[in-house]
Design a protein around this nucleic acid. Structure first.
Length: 895
DNA sequence: TGTGACCCCTAA
DNA sequence: TGAGTTAGGGGTCACA
């Protein structure tokens, strides 16, 4: 058959095969995914052999030929156990210059770690020796998530046959896979194809569990087919074994690519794993498969024993869960990343995303009393469970999680699983190693770089001038760090090491960083990273222009697709700096990161000085942006009210004049900013006029400012202040927002009056408790699941003094009440008495009964609000004014 | 009352 | 023991 598929994940299988009567090691790659026509596939790919590379430490003159002792040592390697073949040498670039590199083919991938270690002790330098075998397939074939393949169908779901069906075994599989079709092919029959939207199937589930007995009371699942948009609901009751077996049967029958749910990583999946262990006791391995065999691997004992990509979901240490052929995507984690919600409960996130859909967030079941609820109102509990099984699908849809991860996978050329659950360095690795192989650059092992000593110096932040500043043009460097990397050819492979012999040889000119670090010119050797970044920039431009043409053609799906792609490219480009500035990445050196930031500081400081020398004040600057005073009529109206606009529309002469003056001022600022950006742009450092503010305000702290944007759109801009923070309380943030409006309108008196009123209301306790809920994330290691007592979580590993942290005290109270705990989740609380040390806090729970009991410390909250608001008013010098108005207090908000 | 350690979260 | 970075503000607690 011929087809196209989107790869979910891959794994490999080691076996023996017989060639001409001789037993030979064989390694088959199993790729799981779904075709463009909607069938799930297991592709058995043949022809890739595990290997790595070695180079001798020490050097000799290449022109003299290879010394005989090297030949002997190579023969020695050839005769090592599990080594199949040695080929080479091939000349590859290494940090120590061009070196002869031999390729070592081994019997199986799992032999590599031990051989690597032995060879290191025998003075070989090892390269490409820590790349997972499946990654090797993506790198060598230069493919990513979307592939086209050709092959022979060896099994179909509808076919009959035992699990060890001969056709599958002959094709290199371990047995009948849980997919629609199993296809055998050779590596040459797989190639990259244009990105397309894979019609994935999603499976979302939720459990209701007994707090008393830890058992599963009931479960529900919802399956969504992205291709058709269709959904199916499933409900499970009965004995616990029946529930688990029925859930597993649904997974196998609906065959999803992606498994989701809300907080399944830390709750539902561990619970299912625990219960499976209890329920399977005194039964064979088949019981485990029936209860929790959710993967696409054949139902065989060996498939349960694997550490990863097994038949049952598993997780090692803190990593995401994994299982064969499917990917686990926790909707909680995705929502947290995408939305940064103030609180993280399912009902809160649902009300954030679907504010008008009351049914999605009302709480009519008391989760802390689940046993009682289940006994008294099983149907309501079931309905609640079903709703919470479906909601994660709504959430993933609303934040476009699957489509965005798919786009990242397409850009980084990795399987879906790596984009969904992998690390940033894995994405970068995927692109950089490909480039290294193309350029004959040896790939060093992770951890082989010299440790970075201390931190490198980062971006420059200009002191901000406190107060109101009218007509500020905001300019910033376009993709500053990527541009610097391209412009100065910064790469692991272009760095000139002064300690290296020959480093002082003639270069065709060099890039010298302000730190003194040297990089070759691209004419001499173009870096891998600059090449990749240029490609990515071009790719992003292509998607951006495709968005334009799709828009004019009215093709909404194409707009979404190209938008997801251009966004993924942007994310990836901006990740390069961080990875290369990190201490552990395989292709890094401490000079790379520090050179990038040093050039950045030089650029921005140079521009600040030049602009100021021209007589234009710079009120603020952070890393790659600069806020400049525009030579605009200072008396021009900064913003017009709705009424003034209406009056101007209606032909009112005064209003029309105001409007004209405002527009003239905006235009004059735009002209100034555009012209300034043009004049200070360089090839590798493009300055852009990003936005125009009719007024800018800061109380004098870096990274905290507000502004009235009048170009390109009209909006309020807030950075850093409490309104942006998720660990503040609503009453404070809403007060601040209003204060900002007064501040930007320069209405000092109204501002002060409003601030006083709000502070007083808090102090008197007139504000509803829901408005003073604080939330902070809480770390801690769960040492026993499920979490039933305080001893089940160890907070001392994450906190020097856990008892002094409010979030820990709250977490402990939650545990006491049987509400469980998951590390990293935000916990909500209210301060009940701040005069105590440490302050008394009570958890804020999701049910009205508990909420009604909460009383807060009004004085504490009033002081916190006063402190925040006071910083703003102080900058205006309004205390004196207030005193003059007859207020006897020495400070505005003292009591 | 001031200070520093520790922590969370944000800007870039 | 698993991994993008640094700069920075501000809250809480403990202690001098």
């Amino acid at each position: 058959m011929k087809g196209r598929m989107g790869i979910v994940s891959g794994r490999y299988r080691s076996s023996q095969t017989s060639i001409n009567g001789r037993s030979q090691p064989q390694t088959v790659i199993e790729l799981f995914g779904r075709t463009d026509t909607g069938s799930s596939v297991c592709l058995l790919v043949h022809g890739l052999r595990p290997s790595f590379e070695i180079a001798p430490i020490g050097t000799w003159d290449l022109d003299d030929g290879m010394p005989s002792f090297i030949k002997d040592r190579i023969e020695n390697v050839r005769s090592m156990e599990h080594v199949l073949a040695v080929s080479g040498p091939e000349t590859k670039w290494t940090q120590l210059g061009d070196r002869p590199v031999w390729n070592i083919e081994v019997e199986q991938p799992f032999h590599v770690p031990a051989l690597r270690k032995t060879l290191k002790t025998r003075s070989w330098q090892v390269f490409s020796g820590d790349i997972p075998f499946v990654n090797r397939f993506f790198l060598d074939g230069d493919v990513g998530i979307h592939i086209a393949f050709e092959g022979e169908v060896v099994d179909k779901r509808a076919d009959q046959g035992p699990v060890d069906k001969a056709e599958v075994l002959i094709a290199g599989g371990s047995g009948r896979y849980g997919v629609d079709i199993t296809v055998r092919c050779d590596i040459e029959q797989v190639r990259a194809t244009e990105p397309f939207q894979v019609p994935y199937t999603l499976f979302s589930f939720d459990l209701e569990t007994s707090i008393e007995h830890e058992t599963v009371l009931c479960a529900a699942a919802c399956v969504e087919h992205l291709g058709s948009g269709e959904r199916q609901m499933f409900e499970y009751r009965g004995t616990e074994s029946e529930i688990l077996e029925a859930l597993t049967a649904t997974v196998q029958a609906t065959d999803p690519d992606i498994i989701t749910g809300y907080n399944i990583d830390n709750f539902d999946l561990p619970r299912l794993a625990d219960r499976t262990n209890v329920l399977r006791r005194n039964q064979g391995w088949q019981a485990t498969a029936r209860l929790f065999g959710w993967g696409r691997a054949p139902v065989l004992e060996g498939e349960l024993k694997r550490n990863r990509d097994a038949l049952t979901p598993k997780r090692q240490s803190n990593r995401a869960w994994n299982l064969s052929g499917r990917v686990v995507m926790d909707a909680w984690w995705q929502a947290r990343q995408a939305l940064k919600p103030r609180r993280e409960t399912l009902s809160f996130v649902a009300s954030l995303l679907f504010p008008d859909d009351e049914d999605k967030h009302k709480m009519d079941i008391d989760a802390s009393e689940m046993d009682r609820e289940w006994a008294n109102r099983p149907d309501e509990v079931m309905a609640y469970c079903a709703r919470d099984a479906a909601l994660p699908l709504d959430i993933l849809g609303a934040i476009q999680a699957v489509r965005r991860k798919e786009a990242v996978a397409a850009v980084a050329k990795v399987p879906f699983e790596t984009a969904a659950n992998g690390s940033t360095s894995q994405l970068i690795d995927s692109l950089v190693i490909r480039m290294a192989d193309r350029q004959a650059v040896a790939v060093p092992l992770t951890g082989s770089a010299e440790a970075k000593e201390g931190q490198i110096t980062g971006g420059y932040v200009h002191e901000v001038e406190a107060g109101l500043h009218p007509w500020i043009a905001v300019l910033d460097f376009k993709s500053m760090y990527p541009s610097i990397m391209i412009g100065h050819n910064i790469c692991y492979t272009t760095r000139i090491d002064p300690a290296q012999p020959g480093s002082t040889d003639q270069h065709l000119g060099v890039h010298e960083a302000p730190t003194g670090a040297l990089f070759r010119k691209q004419e001499e050797r173009k870096g891998m990273v600059p090449t990749l970044l240029e490609d990515l920039m071009a790719q992003r431009d292509r998607h951006k222009s495709a968005i334009k043409s799709a828009k004019s053609a009215g093709d909404e799906a194409a707009v979404d697709f190209h938008d997801a792609m251009q966004y993924a490219v942007k994310i990836l480009m901006n990740s390069f700096y961080g990875v290369f500035a990190s201490g552990f990445y395989r292709f890094t050196h401490r000079d790379l990161g520090s050179s990038i930031t040093a050039w950045a500081r030089q650029n921005i400081k140079g521009i600040i000085a030049a602009v100021e020398a021209e007589g234009h004040g710079v009120v603020y600057s952070d890393t790659d942006s600069i806020f400049v005073r525009s030579p605009v009529d200072q008396n021009a109206p900064r913003i017009l009210s709705e009424e003034e606009f209406a009056e101007a529309e209606n032909g009112d002469a005064d209003a029309k004049k105001l409007l004209q003056e405002h527009r003239d001022a905006v235009q004059s600022m735009v002209d100034f900013g555009t012209q300034l950006a043009e004049r200070y742009s360089r090839d590798s450092a493009v300055l852009e006029f990003e936005k125009g503010l009719s007024v800018f305000f800061s109380h004098g702290a870096k990274k905290r400012y507000i502004g009235q944007v009048v170009w390109p759109d009209k909006e309020m801009l807030v950075r850093g202040y409490e309104t942006q923070r998720t660990d503040s309380f609503i009453y404070l943030t809403s007060t601040m927002k209003e204060i900002f409006r007064y501040a930007l309108a320069d209405q000092g008196d109204a501002l002060v009056a409003f601030a006083k009123k709000r502070v007083e209301a808090l102090r008197q306790g007139e504000v509803h408790a829901s408005q003073v809920v604080l939330a902070k994330s809480c770390k801690g290691r769960v040492v026993r699941t499920p979490v039933k007592s305080r001893d089940d979580v160890d907070f001392t590993r994450d906190y020097t003094n856990p008892d002094s942290m409010a979030q820990v005290r709250v977490a402990r109270q939650r545990i006491d009440r049987g509400l469980g705990f998951t590390s990293g989740m935000k916990v909500s609380y209210v301060v009940s008495d701040a005069t105590k040390r440490p302050m008394s806090v009570v958890p804020w729970l999701d049910n009205e009964e508990d909420q009604a009991k909460v009383s807060y410390d009004g004085r504490f909250y009033a002081e916190r609000l006063a402190a925040a608001v006071g910083r703003i008013t102080e900058a205006f010098g309004w205390e004196a004014k207030d005193l003059m108005a007859g207020n006897k207090q020495t400070s505005l908000f003292s009591f």
